[in-house]
Design a binder for these strands. Sequence first.
RNA 1: GCCCCAGUAGCUCAGUGGACAGAGCACCGGACUUCUAAUCCGAUGGUCGCAGGUUCGAAUCCUGCCUGGGGUGCCA
Length: 568
Amino acid sequence: MMLPDQIADLITTATRKAQKKGDLPRFQLPSVSVNRPKRPEQGDWSCALPLQIVRDVNEALKARDAGKLSPVQIGEIIVRRLPDNPYLERVEVVKPGFINMFLSPEWLAAQAGEIVARGADYYRLDKGQGKRVQVEFVSANPTGPLHFGGARNAAIGDTIARLLENNGYRVQREYYINDRGTQMDIFGETLWRRYQQLHGIEVSIPEQGYPGAYMIEYARKVQAQYGDSLLSLSDEEAIPKFRKLGLEIVTAELADDLAQMQVHFDNWFSESSLYEDGTFDHVAAILRENGDLYVKDDAVWFRASKYLPKSDRDEVFIRSNGEPGYYASDVAYHYNKFVTRGFDWVINVWAVDHQNQAARMPAMLKALGIDPDRLTIVLYDLVTLKRGGKEVKISKRSGELITMREVLDEVGSDAARFLLLSHSNEARIDFDIELAVAQNSENPVYYVQYAHARVSSILRKAAAQGLEPDDAELNLLTHPTELALLHKMLQLPEVVNDAIDRLAPHHLPHYALELAKTFTKFYDACRVLSDDPADAALSRARLTLVKATQITLAYLLHLMGMNAPESM
RNA sequence: GCCCCAGUAGCUCAGUGGACAGAGCACCGGACUUCUAAUCCGAUGGUCGCAGGUUCGAAUCCUGCCUGGGGUGCCA
């Protein structure tokens, strides 16, 4: 259980006891929460319960004509019943009715030893309790290299997966490959034409095809493997063949690009497999039996309005040309996720231009008898690429960077991930390449990594002197910056908990910056190593704190998919 | 038209019911024979888009409006 929950429990217990003993009248208590006040004089933890219950208290007292209590008086009554506990050294009740609590420095200092003893496990929560969750992300159409916008999707999705897998969930990362439909046919045809062109055949690529130079590269890869042996194929034979070959090339390239960002998928799921293994026919049968399908304008429609009371809008299931639409694939796909594979929870990470699609997902789930709460769609806004404040046009012809690989090659994965994660999902990002590359104080990425490098350097130097972390005399840790650093480290589970509850990974980089700042203040104020043997005990205690900081920073960087450098 | 998101310090952004609204950058003034100065300390800086409402308490919740972005039935 997290520290704030434990402290809130103390308040709850004390209040119930006060009721039982007759100090306070009986009524239904609200759930108690505590928060970290901004001002140090208001304590390490604060609780506003007296203000929240003053009305209930006085109404109950009035009923038996027993006078009135002020919030401060209520607070004092509660505090008198506070159970013995190791955390709190001092508790104050102040106007207008806050209970301010101060952590025991001894208990706080002892946590440094706990962190060193248990490592990152000290911070891990069992939020998931073994639940199976799938995070589906990126899932860009496999018709070319990843656009830089995909990097934000990758950073968000992968970080959510990391948050979950470190806190009690069994996580699968999945990439959904849209490997059927009109776009793929045109892609296959373009590749086929490029291949023919490489062999001197004068053909032109399709009108709505893929003009990018990368298609010529793909054709060269086909040529390298097959030579001219495919030239004899007819268009009817060649297009499916090249669609398949192209898909293999692109998929390998996507995996490669994503690996550059420390992103690895457990499963690449083929859309067309849903049609080959009968899933699509099966869900169509379910919907038909329930009377959820009807024909209009030569198309088959899904009666979505039946399941979404606020909407009168239905969805095209099978288009008038006989081809299932994307919504039909989504129905089959989600049936596969929830029923066939039985995930407890599914998270889809989508760009904000799919917002409408996201709003229509619950209808299909209800129609399939699946609890809509088992699906969460994380929507994020787009990224504008800039260089020195000027927008980089998303145009191949400009010659400017646009693919994810090109940006990563220039700014590096760590900086890209950190900067892409720093904004809330709903916020648009202006990603300035110049700023991202800058290895100076303007760039917060390096401030955080630098703190880890410093910590590592101290531990190295100490080891060379024969000094190791030792928790025998941790009560020597009394300096305000030492206690502040410990208090900040203890905040990590709260940050993680919040990030998971809201699927908002941007809390991690912000906290990382705060933690690095808090460490650097300690570093500035407190010398760890010393030439004087008389300081050895304090050095060992501080080394424990430094080691705990290293563990914490490394875990935090790991959650963000970043490296924790030992030196810079 | 309708739906979604955003509007907080000069800039980039945190903060989704608690106390006097925060950070980074920029700007100004200090600190270096450093366990890595990619540093630290201090100062300046805000009618939280606007107007109502709910509440002991609102940047946060509700209603309306303004501005910007996105979406809006056979593309995905």
